[in-house]
Design a protein around this nucleic acid. Structure first.
Length: 256
DNA sequence: ATGGTGGCCCGGCCA
């Protein structure tokens, strides 16, 4: 099974590239973030024509997450549950090919002294609580998405430029570690240990062409999934050319 | 260089 996560920064702006990428890469399950669409505008029929069932949780102008699957898609849940405290569309769950899959778009945080940073830390704590209450790490679970956190300094092109900044601050990394400590493995890192492999590059200042990025898009899998990983890559080609997202897809292949 | 680019949708926010 090939599973991927990709922040596409507007599905409306990116649909043509997403369709070409699906045909090229042939993933079985895709977690999308930042669709920036209302549910009514989500192009489910176009994905169906390509062989993918889909589920979307959107609000319109901002955020929006989706899961595509050609190996089954059932039991869709959105947000943190019935009394969801999150006013924004940042999380969707579905069961695909025997794996409980989440597509997550973690809040950016903006700045360490901003209210949005507290929202980010609370959001991550809510995700850990949801895992504690609803799931079992001995079962197959994948939490994939744009975490807006570089787990270590090796996931940043120049960590000295991000002191006292979001994406690298110790409280964010600790909140991510609490999620991992529930019983998840960074499945890309598991098979690709080398530094300076990035999934996001700022549009500004030619960062992509200078190889100045961060690895903030993660596929976290429970042990029954992580032990099946045979290959992982970041599809840098998807960051090139005309009208790319600022993120590249991260892809993991699992043995059957 | 306190900028830069690109998405939302057309003035300013968000990343």
């Amino acid at each position: 099974m090939r599973i991927a996560t990709w922040n596409i920064n507007s599905l409306k702006a990116r649909m043509e590239r997403v369709e070409a990428w699906l045909a090229d890469v042939a993933p079985d399950v895709v977690c999308l973030q930042e669709t920036k669409l209302a549910d009514a505008a989500f192009p489910a029929l176009s994905f169906q024509a390509l062989g993918y069932e889909s589920a979307h949780h959107g609000e319109g102008r901002w955020n929006g997450v989706a899961i595509l699957s050609r190996v089954g898609l059932t039991d869709v849940e959105t947000g943190f549950g019935p009394d969801d405290p999150d006013p924004e569309a940042r999380l969707i769950w579905a069961t695909c090919g025997g794996i409980r899959v989440a597509s997550a778009y973690v809040p950016n945080g903006r700045a360490l002294d901003h209210d949005h940073y507290r929202y980010k830390l609370d959001w991550l704590a809510n995700l850990r609580a949801q895992l504690d209450q609803g799931y079992d790490p001995t079962e197959p679970v994948v939490v994939a998405g744009d975490f807006n956190i570089a787990p270590t300094d090796e996931d940043v092109w120049d960590a000295s430029k991000f002191v006292d900044a979001t994406h690298t601050s110790p409280p964010e990394r600790e909140a991510l570690a609490k999620i991992v400590d529930w019983g998840l493995v960074d499945m890309f890192r598991q098979v690709r240990p080398e530094p300076s492999l990035f999934s996001w590059w700022d549009y500004r200042a030619g960062r992509f062409h200078k190889h100045e990025g961060m690895r903030i898009d993660l596929l976290l899998g429970s042990d029954p999934v992580a032990e099946r990983v045979r290959f992982a890559t970041i599809d840098r080609n998807a960051r090139k050319g005309q009208q790319p997202s600022d993120h590249a897809p991260v892809i993991v292949d699992l043995a059957d």
